[in-house]
Design a protein around this nucleic acid. Structure first.
Lengths: 131, 131
DNA sequence: TAGTATACACACTTTAGGGTAAGTACTTGT
DNA sequence: ACAAGTACTTACCCTAAAGTGTGTATACTA
C-alpha cells in the first residue's frame, strides 16, 4: 500500500467534494472498479477467499486481497479466519455492507433497463439477486 | 482522449466482468470519480456549464468537460448550445440519466446512515434531494 | 483600447490504481 | 519425493485518470 503524498492535489480535491456531497462519500468507499462486484458477490452470503476468486475470474489475486483489505478497513465487510492448515478464511458483509443492498440493487435494475443487447443476460442474473 | 491499446489486459479483464455483472456495467458508465457528483448536481434540472463549475468547485475545468463529454457519449445527458456570444451551453439528464435517480438516491441514503459525524451535513443535503 | 465573460482545446506532468510474476508456510494426497 | 491447495505478500512496472497551465473566438462594457 503506497502512501499518499500529503501535497497531493487530487486528494485535497476529493476531500473537498467528500464533505459536500453524499454521493461522493459513497464513491470513496465503493468507487474502486472491483469493489461493487465483490460486494455484489457477497450479497448472497459469506464466502471463502477461494470462492470469491472463482466467482470473479478476471480479478488478480493481488487486487482481490487489496480490495478486500480496503473494504474491511472501511468496515464494509468482516474477515474471519480459522487457525488451521490449509488456511480457512471467509468474508462476509458487515451491517453497513449489507445496507448497500439497495444501492447495488438499484444499479442492477438500471443496468437491466438501460443495457440494450445485454439486458437479457442481466435479467438472468437478476433472478438470482438476493432480496 | 488517448486511444485504448487493444492488447490491454485491463480492458480485457474489464470487458469480461462487464458482460457478467450488471453492477460492473453501471460502473462502466458512472464509475468515474466525478460522474456521480455531476449527475447528482443535474438531478435538480438542467444547468449551464458555468453553473456546474460553481456547484462543484473542486473539479478542474478539463476534467469537467471530459466527464461531460463521456456522459454525453454514453447517452446519460444532453448538451444544448445556443449559437450566441458569449456561448450559452446547458446540460441536462437524458431519459436513462434520469433513470439513475434511484441509484443516486440509494447512495445518498446510505451515506446519511453510514457516515457517522457527517450524517448531519448530509441530512441537510437530503432535504433538497429532488424526488 | 483594454478587460471580462463563456465554453471549451491542447500539451505536458503527476498520481493512484491495477497488472505480472514470483515466493511463503504448512499440510495432505500420490 | 514431489506436486497441489490455501491465503496471502512482495517487488517492480505500466497505464488511465486527473491536475497544471496556457490559448482561442467573439461580443459587450468601461
Amino acid at each position: 500500500m503506497t502512501l499518499i503524498k500529503e501535497s497531493s492535489t487530487i486528494q485535497e480535491n476529493k476531500s473537498q467534494a467528500f464533505v459536500a456531497c453524499p454521493v461522493t462519500f459513497v464513491m470513496e468507499k465503493i468507487g474502486g472498479y472491483w469493489k461493487p462486484i465483490i460486494l455484489f458477490n457477497l450479497l448472497s452470503g459469506s464466502k471463502r477467499y477461494s470462492e470469491l476468486k472463482k466467482s470473479i475470474p478476471a480479478i488478480t489475486e493481488k487486487v482481490l486481497i487489496q480490495q478486500l483489505k480496503q473494504l474491511e478497513g472501511d468496515g464494509l465487510l468482516i474477515r474471519k479466519s480459522k487457525p488451521v492448515v490449509p488456511p480457512y478464511v471467509t468474508y462476509e458483509l458487515s451491517k453497513s455492507g449489507k445496507a448497500l443492498h439497495p444501492v447495488l440493487y438499484a444499479m442492477a435494475e438500471w443496468a437491466v433497463g438501460n443495457s440494450g443487447k445485454l439486458s437479457k443476460t442481466f435479467s438472468k442474473q437478476m433472478k438470482d439477486f438476493p432480496l
